[in-house]
Each structure stands twice: as structure tokens, then as C-alpha cells.
């Protein structure tokens, strides 16, 4: 009775596309940039790094550019795109609200504030992920509590999200005000959302958190489907709705804050990608969440490539995603009141 479901063939095509789209962009992007590196040289860098021996004489700067600058940067772009997209897909489902994502719910600015405080008060060597996660949770639960008071309609969630975001933005400005010039310089780029300053040390904490979080969330994708029913229905089916929703919100906040604390605030990806994927694959989160991870990762690399190739001053990537995302958001608002997939 496979006719009842999306055909296996279409499914396989979508999975392949979601895997190869980011992979190919990733490989191409290693050669891309102001210093041109041939794919052959990239390969040699990898071989020499993995085998631990310098097989052939490569210019030292090429090795360094590929291994220490481009590779962490691209890996972070992959993780960021995947994290925001999967958070967005799951949050839209469990809030039953197409307009919601980690950015709109205040998680991004909450985490941003936490990471900034960590940088300014605890210094560069203390992992910012901890405070970022704490403040991200604080922000999202603040939104939930306030929206509950306002009867929890889709728009009230949105408005409280905006208010809470504004509050954390103000706190963030206060942190900038008291920061030392040295810390301020680091803050500036990071706040606008950028992959350009990333090092291996940044990935050391964030990458495992994001990968573990994504894995658990995608494992829960069927649960996310059921949680998209209204609360009574999901409870009647046998779910502990409150507890399971909170678990998913915590995981979404975890991966978002892990990314924000190193890449800064990059908005709207979590809105665009899941909606586009639903257009291709339907509503089922068992497909939508993993596909969003793949396509989101690829799109983030693409956005970063555009910057590296076309803008001489390294425009922060957050600006590009906002320029694309906000018109899309307005379009969604316009057609939302009814169904949305």
C-alpha cells in the first residue's frame, strides 16, 4: 500500500538532493575566495593533515588558508544552516504557527546577550555556549509565559517575541557600552552574524552540541508531528504534551544558542528553509526535519559564498539572510490565517 505515502522514489531523490547540495557546495567553496586554491591543492592539504606528513611541498599559507580559515568557516556555515532550519521546522510545528522560529521567539537575542556577557565578563577562554543557552532558554520561556497571559494566539506569541527580543537587544547594547574596546571589536562583527572570524577552538564546543541536538531532534520528528495537533488531541492520543513540547523547545534552544555563540545572530533562515521544504515534501516532519537540515546547510554556504566572492568588505551574512527573509515573512503573514502547508 505504498501508494498512500509519498513515493519511495521521490523520497530518495529528495534525500539525495539534501545530502549532495551542501556537500558539493562545501567542496567547491574550499577553493573559493580571494586567494585561489585549486581543488588538487585542497585534496593535498587534506591528505597531508590526515596522514600527518607533508607529502608534497605545499606553500605554508595555502595549507593554513584551507585548514585553519576556510574549513572551520564552512563547517560552521553547514552547522548553522542545519541548526536554524531544524529549529524552525520543529518550532513551527509544535507552536502550530507558521510565522515562528528561533529568531522570532527571542532565542537568538537571548543567546546573543548571554554570549556577549560571557565574552565581556568571563573572557575569551570561557565557553560562551553555557550562558548563551541559559539566556536563550530564559528568553523563550519568558515569551511562553507572557503569551499564555495573552491567550496564546499566533499573533500574541509573535508580539511577545518581538518585545522580549527588544528587551534582550537593549541589554546587549548595555553590555557593549561597558565592554572594553578590545572586547567590543570582537563583539561588533559577531553581533551582525558572520562566519569570518571562526576558528577551530569555536567549533570545539559548538559542533558536538549542534550535532547531538540535531540527532535527537530528528529522532523525535514523528513526535513533533503529533505535537502539531492541538493539545487535547495530542493528549488523548497518549502524549505528555507539556513535557514533550518543553523538551523540543530546550533542544531547539540548545542548537540555536550553540551556533549563535560563535556565529552571532543570523535571522530568518529557520523561516525560509522549512517552508520551502514543506512545499517539496509535504507536512511530515520525518521528511521535513532531515531535509531542512541538508538544504539549510547548503543555503548557508551559498549565502556565505556570495559574500566571499562579491563583497570586498566581507558583508556579515546575517544581513543577506535578513534581506531575503523579511520579504518572505511578510508574504507568509499575508497568507497565514488559514492552513499553511
Amino acid at each position: 500500500m505504498s501508494g498512500f505515502r509519498i513515493s519511495h522514489r521521490k523520497k530518495r531523490c529528495l534525500y539525495l538532493a539534501a545530502a549532495f547540495f551542501p556537500l558539493i557546495l562545501f567542496l567547491i567553496s574550499l577553493s573559493l575566495g580571494t586567494v585561489s586554491v585549486t581543488p588538487g591543492q585542497v585534496l593535498k592539504v587534506f591528505i597531508s593533515k590526515i596522514s600527518g606528513s607533508n607529502l608534497e611541498a605545499l606553500p605554508e599559507n595555502i595549507t593554513s588558508i584551507v585548514w585553519n580559515i576556510r574549513l572551520p568557516r564552512l563547517l560552521l556555515a553547514l552547522l548553522t544552516g542545519a541548526a536554524f532550519s531544524v529549529s524552525g521546522a520543529s518550532l513551527q510545528s509544535i507552536f502550530r504557527n507558521p510565522l515562528v522560529n528561533e529568531y522570532v521567539l527571542g532565542v537568538s537575542f537571548g543567546s546573543g546577550f548571554g554570549a556577549a556577557v560571557s565574552l565581556v565578563l568571563l573572557g575569551r577562554h570561557f565557553p560562551p555556549q553555557i550562558l548563551a543557552f541559559g539566556c536563550g532558554l530564559l528568553a523563550v520561556f519568558l515569551v511562553l509565559m507572557l503569551a499564555e497571559g495573552a491567550r496564546n494566539t499566533p499573533l500574541s506569541v509573535l508580539l511577545t517575541g518581538i518585545v522580549v527580543s527588544a528587551f534582550f537587544q537593549a541589554l546587549l547594547s548595555a553590555v557593549e557600552f561597558v565592554a572594553s574596546p578590545y572586547a567590543l571589536q570582537a563583539l561588533f562583527f559577531w553581533l551582525l552574524g558572520s562566519f569570518s572570524q571562526v576558528t577551530w577552538a569555536d567549533l570545539f564546543w559548538s559542533a558536538p552540541l549542534v550535532i547531538a541536538g540535531l540527532f535527537l531532534m530528528i529522532k523525535m520528528s514523528w513526535r513533533v508531528n503529533v505535537l502539531s495537533l492541538n493539545e487535547d488531541e495530542a493528549r488523548a492520543i497518549g502524549l505528555s504534551v507539556k513535557r514533550e513540547r518543553i523538551l523540543i523547545i530546550c533542544l531547539a534552544t540548545l542548537i540555536t544558542s550553540a551556533v549563535v555563540s560563535v556565529a552571532g545572530i543570523i535571522g530568518w533562515v529557520g523561516l525560509i528553509v522549512p517552508h520551502a521544504v514543506r512545499g517539496l515534501a509535504g507536512a511530515d516532519n520525518r521528511l521535513v526535519m532531515p531535509l531542512s537540515a541538508g538544504f539549510g546547510a547548503g543555503l548557508m554556504i551559498l549565502a556565505d559564498d556570495l559574500i566571499r566572492v562579491f563583497s570586498p568588505y566581507e558583508l556579515p551574512v546575517g544581513i543577506i539572510t535578513s534581506l531575503v527573509g523579511i520579504p518572505f515573512f511578510l508574504y507568509l503573514i499575508k497568507r497565514t490565517p488559514h492552513s499553511w502547508s
Binding site: 508531528n225 503529533v226 492541538n230 492520543i237 497518549g238 514543506r278 507536512a283 499553511w340 502547508s341
Partner: peptide, 23 residues
């Protein structure tokens, strides 16, 4: 909220038997 395929929609009735992380 999401426009599921009817088969999947009916399948949701099975979820009470399922573990948190299983499909």
C-alpha cells in the same frame, strides 16, 4: 496546523504506544 496526508494522520493514533524517540 499542518496539512498531513490522511494515512499519516491516522497513523498518529499509534503514537501512544511509541517511545519518545521512535517512529
Amino acid at each position: 496546523a499542518l496539512n498531513f496526508q490522511v494515512f499519516d494522520f491516522i497513523l498518529m493514533g499509534r503514537s501512544g504506544h511509541l517511545h519518545l524517540f521512535s517512529s
